[in-house]
């Protein structure tokens, strides 16, 4: 019985969720993500949906982030990679224009969740 239950669990875990829902963050995460974006001032360089101002153009627009290919044209497009990139871009992608940003690990996860969760076209 236990073995069966365990194997069922393993099977469930092994299943990948459908693409549309894989990166659907909770509303809490999204709200925290946007708050962290505003506090850290990401808009100084990026146009970010949901943020009227600032909408800097030094860096790329972050609209439709769920559809982009590689992060910064170089890194696998996964939330954990994005979170790491947000905190220490030059560490993850040497030579990156984007400097390390003063956000905590959980804030970076929230920001990543926000960026993936804002546009489903």
């Amino acid at each position: 019985m236990i073995v069966m239950a365990l194997s069922a669990c393993v099977t469930l875990v092994a299943c990948k969720e459908p693409v549309e829902t894989r990166r659907e963050p909770t509303n809490d995460m999204k709200a925290r993500g946007l708050a962290a974006i505003e506090r850290a001032g990401c808009g100084s360089c990026h146009k970010i949906p949901g943020l009227d101002w600032p909408a800097g153009r030094l860096g790329p627009s972050l609209e439709g982030f769920d559809d982009v290919g590689l992060i910064a044209g170089a890194l696998p497009n996964r939330p954990d990679v994005l979170a790491a990139f947000i905190r220490n871009a030059p560490g993850v992608k040497p030579g990156s224009t984007m400097p390390p940003m003063p956000v905590s690990a959980s804030e970076a996860e929230d920001i990543a969740a926000y960026l993936y969760g804002i546009d489903h076209d």
């Binding site: 850290a40 001032g41 360089c45 030094l58 860096g59 984007m98 390390p100 940003m101």
Partner: peptide, 16 residues
């Protein structure tokens, strides 16, 4: 906010 990122953004593109 005042950090490395906003400083770079401001110097590079304060007109935006």
């Amino acid at each position: 906010a005042n950090n490395r990122g906003t400083m770079v953004g401001w110097i590079g593109d304060s007109q935006s």
